[in-house]
Nucleic acid binder design. Structure first.
Lengths: 330, 330
DNA sequence: CGCGGGGGAGACACATGTCAGGACCGCCCG
DNA sequence: CGGGCGGTCCTGACATGTGTCTCCCCCGCG
């Protein structure tokens, strides 16, 4: 049976002062005598007083809360991003609320409604493009940063993405360096990766060898696409997959077809999931610096909270290639 | 430049009524004439009014917020648990705040402080035992459910865990059925799993074959422990690992030693991570019904919020064995 | 005309921050 | 020596946005 929490009043009574003074002490005002300050602090300690953030938010007009809406909490990319985000927000005195929409637009709207009712100071959209009316309206009222989606053109909405095209280029350069020519690509939801692949192939004068297969972003999708690619004649000697999960499907398909990795087939993924780091899989992959992206988003958001009405900014983060054992010489 | 949000007052003025009436309409009171109700609703719509949850919380003395403190957001177990939790809480009109402590007790305390200042209605501790003074005090003030930790003996703190011992038994029974005798166990942080293993082995009169190796809960730890086990003579024909990540290490070790899975060695994991579901790994594993556990925790918490001061309850969830391709006949 | 009841308005409460002002003291100058 | 002034410390009043409670008005019915 939780007893009612002590209020600033109770502290004031116990210390024999007015509640205003308690407030001043707690807010660290310099115009308080040491004597009273100690009395107040002791009373607060004895009562186990904790300031009521709800009341404080009401009067301040700020909640120091940031709502992060995630399309899919299971995606390790988002989890690690949130680490970086929280870490930095914490430094700015902001707390993070997480909502996950499970890829459902109705949940997205609902979660954002909640955030708005809570009067969050800022919004971070992870893998979610503000297209619904609710979300667009939200961005008008609340400082917002969108992560992982390009081509958002809303006033005052900042964007953080990794440089997909560069990432694709890193992958292709690596494979070319290993002597590969017939490098195929399995295209996922991020079309800019595919573009990067095309550009890089052309740059290496490998346009004739371009092979693209579309797949949905799942292991099964990757397996099917890879099977289609690997039964072509001549078959590709390397596959650059849209992401790690798809790449896992490629590994499955290769195993089914009796192809050894990397002797017969080199595979590159994208995202550097902990999957790929596993010794048992050891997948060469393009790493998006997730924490750094989280920190970057936090910086943009804090800045915008401090001064809304800034012009929208785009922050492109440089990805990096992590070479493991799934790629080798032809 | 976010314009100030409309308040209930603005709505009242526009509709030509008192703010009390607006409140009544919005709360769905039956004692309002249809005429005024429509006027209020229309005014609210036109202004894009959204009730201020902060003010409402202040007066209600309830925030309808639940704080979930997670030891490690990356652990897919927690992520999926949170799905179930949020799903159920949502049905009870509660919103979920997530804090992650990254296994750091200082962060735990800090996050809980935040929750308490926000006056959350309830607390869920995921993989975190309330041992610090702050946490214990928190459980006294706020309805709390602890997940994944046994042996908490605090008044009015409910517990949700899976039945480790049963899970271990399922794994061993399965292996015995396949004809295995020399079944080893790699022990992780949850000692009850090890006990379950011991009990199950004895029940099958396999006490002479008991082999246990301790490891920290990582792929590398699993690899080392497995190497130690597999170089014994005679070597075990099956290994029951403390969890999936450890099992992955076992697979690595087996590959290094030239042992085929499942022909030469059967492997069982625990947790049924998406790792194990991957076709490329296909690990037989004990599944903890994570969503169900989340829902169970939500139910306990809602109940306790409605009526604090109930006696502490322990909810043990039945795990289930998911058979895949990492186990086979001797 | 009186009474009952439905519908609406005003006052208060919630916990806190802030701001204007007041009490008190010491110092300086007349 | 007293009055004025400036400064320090503290207090009381007000504001934040909402829910609820009491009270009042007015209409209809007996």
């Amino acid at each position: 049976m939780p007893r009612p929490r002590p209020t600033i009043r109770n502290v004031a009574e116990r210390a024999g002062v007015s509640k205003s003074l308690v407030s001043l002490v707690l807010r660290g005002s310099p115009h308080v005598s040491e004597h009273r300050r100690q009395a107040v602090l002791q009373a607060a300690r004895e009562l186990g007083y904790r300031p009521n953030a709800v009341a404080r938010s009401l009067v301040e007009g700020r909640t120091h809360l940031v709502g992060a809406l995630v399309a899919d909490l299971h995606n390790p990319f988002y989890a690690e991003f949130l680490d970086g985000l929280q870490e930095s927000l914490h430094g700015d005195g902001l707390r993070m609320l997480i909502g996950n929409s499970q890829w459902d637009p109705a949940f997205e709207d609902e979660a954002v409604e909640s955030f708005l009712e809570l009067r969050v100071d800022g919004l971070v959209l992870l893998g979610i493009a503000p297209t619904s009316e609710t979300l667009i309206e939200a961005t008008a009222y609340t400082p917002t940063v969108v992560v992982g989606e390009r081509d958002i053109e809303l006033d005052g909405v900042d964007i953080v993405v990794d440089d997909d095209q560069l990432g694709a280029r890193l992958a292709i350069d690596h494979l070319v360096e290993l002597g590969h020519k017939r490098i195929a690509h399995i295209e996922g939801p991020r079309s800019s990766r595919c573009e990067g692949y095309l550009v890089a192939m052309r740059r290496h004068s490998l346009a004739p060898y371009i092979m693209v297969e579309a797949a949905d972003a799942s292991e099964e999708g990757g397996r099917e696409a890879a099977t289609a690619l690997l039964t072509r004649d001549p078959r590709p000697t390397a596959i650059f997959a849209a992401n790690d999960v798809v790449a896992l499907g490629v590994l499955s398909a290769a195993a089914d077809l009796g192809l050894r990795v990397p002797e017969d087939l080199s595979v590159v993924g994208y995202d550097n999931t902990h999957l790929s780091a596993s010794r048992h899989i050891s997948l060469t992959s393009v790493d998006q610096p997730r924490r750094a992206m989280g920190r970057s988003a936090a910086a943009l958001l804090s800045d915008r909270i401090g001064d809304p009405g800034k012009v929208a900014r785009l922050r492109e983060i440089r990805p990096e290639l992590i070479v493991r054992r799934s790629t080798g010489r032809v």
